[in-house]
């Protein structure tokens, strides 16, 4: 009896030990990148000045630069990256499709459409929200898109193939509506919308960061509590059903919270592509699909990618901050391609 437990424990420890080590290591690497990110910038502070400013032991300007500009941006990179990684992880899980991300199913197009309404037409769906017009619009349309998908899947008892198809249709719909708005926009508005759509963290402040942290942590807790159910979703639907899991319900709930993550990230930072796709992919290679590790790893890898991208977009062209969405895609795609090719070889 004890021998069986012992043998089982040995295997179990072999399986989880590496994952725990990597998760711990990643947390330190992310903290390190966070400090670097706060240090790097155009104001020309030295490392010791930066540290002094973090400790609020420097001149007012330095403290202002560090506390009001760099820290919220650096922390946002970490939390938005984590949100994108998590959203991608769960979207890939419930759709059992490695090409899915938070932006699949037209969720980000819906958010962009809301932003376009705000930037170009200055139309607010909820009247009287003032400066929050863009955020409110994005959030509303993303949740609307999610609601339509959920209602649709409820009505048709839809499997994932139909959900994906319907999501693609929504994607085109909102994409076309956004194009329509761009078509009628004047030059100035068009420019500011295009710039918004590049994806950027420069507009982040403590307030927006707090909302991002809240949503990210909330969704993490919700997903983590369903870790085993979500893990079972990576088996076949029938297999998951035979384990007593209501696969359609899990799918619908997850879409709702992924939409919340997508809405938050897009409305605050625009569309930052690729992180949500690649982070779960890397996480899966490390941890497999046990959600107790797959979920945190996806979040951490997403956080690290965006944190590094945030550093890069400040140092690549000195004196300019490039849009972070461009960096993640341009640097990320060759890297990602190399990774896939390498892995394919190791499987053969």
């Amino acid at each position: 009896m004890d021998k069986t437990v012992q043998a089982g424990r040995e295997i179990y420890i072999n399986i989880v030990q590496k994952k725990i080590t990597i998760i711990t290591a990643l947390i330190f690497v992310i903290l390190f990148s966070l400090v670097i990110n706060i240090f790097v910038g155009s104001a020309g502070l030295t490392l010791s000045e930066t540290v002094a400013a973090i400790a609020r032991q420097a001149d007012d300007t330095s403290i202002l630069v560090v506390w009001d500009i760099r820290m919220p941006v650096a922390l946002s990179a970490v939390f938005i990256g984590a949100a994108l990684g998590m959203a991608g992880c769960e979207m890939q899980t419930i759709l059992r499709n490695p090409m899915a991300s938070a932006y699949t199913l037209g969720l980000s197009s819906a958010a962009s459409f809301g932003a376009a309404l705000a930037i170009v037409l200055r139309f607010s769906v909820i009247p009287g929200v003032g400066n929050y017009m863009l955020i409110a619009n994005s959030l509303l349309f993303t949740m609307l898109a999610a609601g339509v998908i959920i209602a649709f899947s409820k009505k048709s008892g839809a499997d994932r193939g139909i959900i994906i198809l319907f999501g693609i249709a929504l994607n085109f719909l909102f994409g076309s509506l956004t194009t329509l708005i761009k078509y009628v926009a004047n030059e100035v508005d068009l420019q500011s919308f295009v710039f918004w759509s590049f994806g950027s963290l420069t507009k982040m402040n403590w307030e927006k960061l707090a909302v991002t942290v809240f949503v990210t942590v909330l969704c993490f807790i919700i997903f983590a509590r369903k870790a085993w159910k979500l893990t079972a979703m990576s088996l076949s639907d029938t297999n998951a059903l035979s384990l007593g899991i209501d696969v359609n319900q899990v799918r619908r709930n997850t879409i709702f919270f992924v939409a919340l993550l997508a809405a938050t990230t897009v409305s605050f930072a625009g569309t930052i592509g690729f992180v949500g796709l690649v982070a779960p992919h890397l996480a899966r290679m490390i941890s497999g699909e046990d959600q107790r590790y797959f979920l945190p790893l996806s979040a951490l890898i997403g956080a690290l990618i965006l944190s590094l991208a945030s550093i890069l977009c400040k140092i690549l062209v000195p004196g300019t901050i490039l849009p972070i969405g461009l960096i993640t895609s341009i640097i990320g795609i060759p890297f990602f391609t190399a990774l896939i090719l390498q892995r394919k070889r190791s499987y053969m």
Partner: peptide, 14 residues
């Protein structure tokens, strides 16, 4: 069920 297990990244143990 009848269908074969999909190409899942779960270990046999999991």
């Amino acid at each position: 069920p009848q269908e074969e297990m999909p190409a899942t990244y779960l270990t046999v143990f999991e």
